[in-house]
Design a protein around this nucleic acid. Structure first.
Length: 614
RNA sequence: GGUCUCGUAGCUCAGCUGGAUAGAGCAGCUCACUUCUAAUGAGCAGGUCUCAGGUUCGAAUCCUGACGGGAUCACCA
């Protein structure tokens, strides 16, 4: 039981005995004492004033005395206004430090027996990964690591959107315009190579569309479909998708190719496999550089027909209803959502159908207790509907469904738009931050004794640390602005700042010649700065649970920063190797080691590695 | 237009289920390396927490409304 809940219990019991009043733990508000006030924990007395009809002073005295008598770990208390500040005994903190130092599983919670599937990344196979994917991947990875630390078994997965009209666009463009060029022959990274043809398709389509706009047919279309007062340019901008479907030769070819794919045409399938393999090879190196991997994969080409049987089942149970045209719908008005299509009138699936089927398949495959979908917030509505449908179907896993929704990333110049070429490419971005780390290190010339390989490893750890921290420090739900200049920053609240704290500790431990662990026990009056660090570290296991419950890595990002900050200050103010006594030295070595271990663990849950030196 | 979401310092962000004087970083201005790594530390300056009501001992936090961003409302994925 955590310290705070232990005290809460005691307060409840005390009030029960004295006042015959039954309260719940969340009515007893206990916070860490604010920095500028003496004490360790603060109990807010105000809520009791009304309930007990006594003055804050009297209640505070009562609770303070009662806690002093019942709990051995309390040194003293004082009352400031309606706030009861509790001081814990130094011995208490020293014991905590020893526990933390000796427990290599500190912050790793006992197994819960729960199995969680986390889906993230889930790219389309027509273009390379970009900054948006990076946020998704970092969140998914971190949420997975946090869930593991919270004691759950985690299966990391992604659904690869490897089929559909977008994929056919790249394929068709390559077939028509490449002259047989390959990633090997062109020297372009293979996923970028495929992306290039996706862009080419769009260019050719636009050319074709532009020419068509001068035709008589186009004029006719404009006249009959334009909105009141809409000028011709605006109209054609809006009409592009219709053009693609109804008039475009390229559009027709792509659609034909999609149909051929669905009919298992050998040639089309062979092309599809070849180009998708290029994409997968490219993705793989991006994933390796990001330091992530998956336990299992789902492919949309396998799952896109799933779900129809469940729709049938739902129809027979009257969860869905059929319209006259044969299309199938669900009415979610009582859930404050509207009617939603789950099967087209021609009997084919929509996105929702697949997702229903895929959820069931995953449950059958893995028997999971929970499924987490890391998907951008533009799909909030989709997931609300999906989860409601699964609940209506009374699937056994619906309690554990969670949409880890995150906000889009904006650039300082505005939104990322693939059409306008403002999308930040994942590989380019990583190369940039690593290069920046290299330049920073070159200035300082501190890595010279390392081999080239070791140096490269460090550059990559620092650069990626900066990038990952920059993204993960922001709460997932928040739309964030990504300024490339700031993202390579390595000072202040950044990944490298935290890494640097650990590197400084490494340096101390390297230079340390002898010290005696037994003397640690004899250092009985720790400094405020030392107690501060212990208090800080002590919170870590609870924060892992909080980060898991909220599915919010930024909780740990803030924690690591605050701890590193306290350590940097401590390092500046207090001698460690040349401490005033052997006892103090032993104590501080233990403390530094604990700080280093906890920082390393917290950052590991964010997917950030610690360099040996920097 | 309906629904959802966000609005905190010049900029990027913290601020837990309501609690003490709203915090960091960046940018700006000072200062500190013969010391265990200055990718650091200390300081100055920077705020009507978008606005208006309400709930209460107490509101950046909860409720209502307005304003301003964003998302979404396809037999697209």
């Amino acid at each position: 039981m955590s310290l705070i809940s232990q005290i809460q219990e005691q307060v409840l019991e005390g009030i029960r005995e004295e006042y015959k009043l039954e309260l719940s733990p969340n009515q007893v508000v206990i916070n860490p004492t604010r920095k500028d006030v003496e004490g360790d924990l603060t109990l807010v007395v105000f809520p009791f004033v009304k309930m007990l009809k006594k003055s804050p002073q009297m209640i505070g005295e009562f609770i303070g005395e009662m806690l002093m008598n019942k709990l051995d770990l309390i040194d003293k208390y004082d009352l400031l206004g309606g706030f009861l500040n509790i001081h814990l005994k130094d011995g208490f903190w020293n014991e905590r430090l020893r526990d933390i130092y000796q427990n290599e599983h500190f912050g790793v919670h006992p197994k819960t027996g729960k199995k969680i599937l986390v889906e993230f990344s889930s790219p389309n196979t027509n273009k390379p990964l970009h900054l948006g994917h990076i946020r998704n991947i970092l969140l998914g990875w971190s949420a997975s690591k946090i869930a593991e630390a919270a004691g759950h078994e985690v299966i990391k997965t992604q659904i690869i959107n490897d089929r559909g009209i977008a994929v056919c666009k790249s394929m068709l463009a390559w077939q028509k315009f490449s002259d047989g060029e390959t990633p090997q022959s062109s020297g372009i990274k293979s996923d970028h190579f495929v992306g290039k043809y996706y862009v080419i398709f769009d260019q050719k389509l636009r050319e074709e569309y532009g020419n068509w706009q001068d035709s008589a047919k186009a004029k006719e279309v404009y006249q009959s479909f334009k909105k009141e007062g809409e000028d011709i340019d605006k109209f054609f901008k809006r009409y592009k998708n219709n053009y693609f479907n109804e008039y475009s030769a390229l559009g027709a070819e792509a659609t034909t190719m999609l149909e051929a794919w669905e009919e298992n045409d050998t040639e089309v399938r062979a092309l599809w496999q070849k180009m998708n393999q290029w994409v997968y090879d490219g993705f793989e190196s991006t994933y390796v550089n990001l330091g992530v991997n998956f336990d299992c994969l789902y492919y949309e080409s396998d799952t896109y027909t799933l779900g129809k049987d469940i729709i049938e089942e739902g129809l027979s149970k009257s969860i869905f209803y059929k319209k006259e045209d044969g299309s199938v719908w669900i009415d979610l008005e009582d859930k404050k959502l509207d009617h939603k299509l789950v099967l087209r009138s021609n009997g084919t699936s929509v996105y929702m159908t697949q997702d229903i089927g895929t959820a069931n398949k995953r449950f059958k495959d893995h028997g999971v207790d929970a499924m987490v979908y890391v998907v951008g917030d533009e799909q909030d509505y989709h997931f609300k509907v999906l989860f409601e449908i699964l609940k209506a179907m009374d699937e056994p896993y619906t309690e554990g469904l969670y949409h880890l929704s995150y906000g889009m990333i904006d650039l300082p110049t505005g939104k990322m738009k693939s059409r306008e070429g403002t999308v930040v490419d994942a590989d380019d971005l990583m190369a940039e931050v690593i290069e920046e780390a290299r330049l920073g290190a070159a200035d300082r010339g501190i890595l010279e004794e390392l081999s080239v390989e070791e140096q490269n490893e460090v550059f990559s750890q620092i650069g990626m640390g900066a990038l990952k921290y920059f993204i993960l420090k922001v709460g997932p739900k928040k739309r964030m602005v990504f300024d490339p200049k700031d993202s390579v920053d390595m000072q202040g609240q950044t990944g490298p700042y935290i890494q640097n704290a650990v590197v400084r500790i490494n340096s101390i431990l390297r230079k340390l010649e002898n010290w005696n662990f037994d003397l640690f026990q004899e250092y009985s009056e720790p400094l405020e700065a030392e107690k501060n660090l212990i208090k800080h570290i002590h919170q870590y296991p609870d924060l892992v649970l909080a980060a898991d419950a909220e599915r919010d890595p930024s909780i740990l990002a803030s924690f690591a920063y605050e701890l590193a900050k306290d350590f940097h200050k401590f390092y500046h103010d207090v001698r460690i190797i040349k401490a005033e006594s052997e006892m103090a030295k032993a104590y501080r070595v233990v403390l530094c080691t604990a700080v280093k271990d906890v920082l390393t663990k917290a950052m590991d849950l964010l997917g950030i590695e610690m360099p040996k030196r920097m």
